[in-house]
Simulated scan of single mutants.
Amino acid sequence: MSDKRKLVLFAACELGVFDLLAEAGPLDAIGVAARLDTSPQATETLLDTCVSLRLLTRDATVSPAAYGSTRLSRTFLARGSPLSQTHLLSYTATTVYRTWAHLASAVREGRNQHLRAFGASSRDLFSAIYRSEEERLLFLRALQQTWGVHGPPTLTAFDLSPFARICDLGGGLGGLARQCAALYPNSRVTVLDLPEVVAVARTHCPLPQDARVNFLEGDFLRDPLPVADLFILARILHDWTDDRCRHLLARIPGFPVPLSRPPVVSPSPDGPGARAGGGVLVVESLLDADGRGPLATQLLSVNMLLQTEGRERSAGEYHALLAAAGFSHLQVRSGLGLYAALLATQ
């Protein structure tokens, strides 16, 4: 989707077009404008453009023409849908696109563009993302919605039921952890994240009293890590340089105590089955071995340049990082959508 098309999408989401038509459609342009308090003529222009983008329908058999939602807009663009991506789109519009305006500078300097885009230090990766309480919550909700779509295929790429104690490092509001606990009812999941993130999670996403998910405050680059049989690193390593990744992976403790039962992981041509003793599940978008594709991952890597100190990598590059930390057995499951799952064991 081109930039202008994305801006149409962002505007329609911000105005609540898809929410309105999912709940009250079909409506004509005057009816939409009246409910959204927008210009009728401009609203019709926006609606017709959304129709051309196949985000809405237009019924010209009635007069005036009536606009309605599509399956795609009801599923991903309406706030009430469990698979809604509206927070992700809003974060992309307000934060991501502002850094992309400085791509040439990022290439010249080889560093993120927080300073130019937001006046925030380029050395603190999350100073721009967390530049206000509202932006912090928006970013965390965006990640939550990402895992609403991509969580199930990555968490079921391998049988994780042998891992009774699971720790999701940098797990945000706990979206992936909740899915993991639901898929593997004999497991307990700890989300380790910064104190300010945990505070947001407890305020906006409180857990039931008997939940098998709990939050732990800490910095995974500095503080002691909890005891766990499996550590999940979902969209974490791509934030960091190779040296930082090696540092983080080296901090993951060994597993001298065997699991209660042997792991059951299907054999893979990419490596042997998982062994008792624990492991690391990495969830990232993978580049081809030569780095020349796929395009979606290349664009994500450019985004990492603009916003972090990291990049996207190939399966071979992740294998090298994991092997250096003692995780010599690696299995890869790709073809899961935008992300792949890599299960590494010692």
Rank of each mutant, 00 (worst) to 15 (best):
S2G: 15
S2D: 13
K6D: 04
L9Q: 05
L9W: 01
F10Q: 06
A11F: 02
A12F: 02
L15E: 12
V17Q: 13
L20T: 10
D28C: 14
A29H: 11
I30G: 11
V32R: 03
A33E: 09
D37E: 15
T38P: 02
S39H: 12
P40M: 09
T43N: 04
L47C: 12
D48H: 10
C50A: 14
S52N: 14
A60T: 15
V62D: 06
P64A: 04
A65H: 04
S69M: 01
R71Q: 05
L72G: 01
F76P: 00
L77Y: 05
G80P: 00
T86D: 02
T86W: 04
T86Y: 01
T92H: 13
Y97H: 12
T99I: 06
W100F: 15
A101V: 10
L103M: 10
S105P: 00
V107T: 08
R108Q: 11
H114G: 01
A120S: 11
D124N: 07
S127Y: 00
Y130S: 02
E134L: 01
E134R: 09
E135N: 12
Q144I: 00
W147M: 11
G148W: 02
H150G: 00
P152G: 10
T154E: 03
A157K: 05
L160I: 05
I166H: 03
L169K: 00
G172A: 09
L173C: 07
G174H: 02
R178V: 12
Q179S: 09
Q179H: 05
A181M: 03
L183H: 07
P185Q: 05
L192W: 02
L194Y: 04
P195I: 03
E196T: 10
V200W: 00
R202M: 09
P208T: 07
D210K: 06
A211R: 04
N214H: 14
F215E: 06
V227Q: 15
I232C: 04
L233M: 08
I236G: 04
H238V: 08
H238D: 12
D239V: 01
D242G: 01
R244S: 14
H247D: 13
L248A: 07
A250H: 09
I252G: 10
P256T: 05
V257L: 07
L259Q: 14
S260T: 12
S266I: 00
P269A: 12
R275N: 03
G278I: 08
G278Q: 08
E284C: 07
S285D: 05
L287N: 09
A289F: 00
P294E: 11
P294D: 12
P294T: 06
P294G: 11
L295I: 13
A296Q: 13
A296W: 01
Q298V: 14
L305I: 06
Q307P: 00
Q307E: 13
G310E: 06
E312P: 01
A323N: 13
A325M: 06
G326A: 10
F327L: 15
H329K: 09
Q331V: 02
R333L: 02
L338V: 15
L342P: 06
T345C: 14
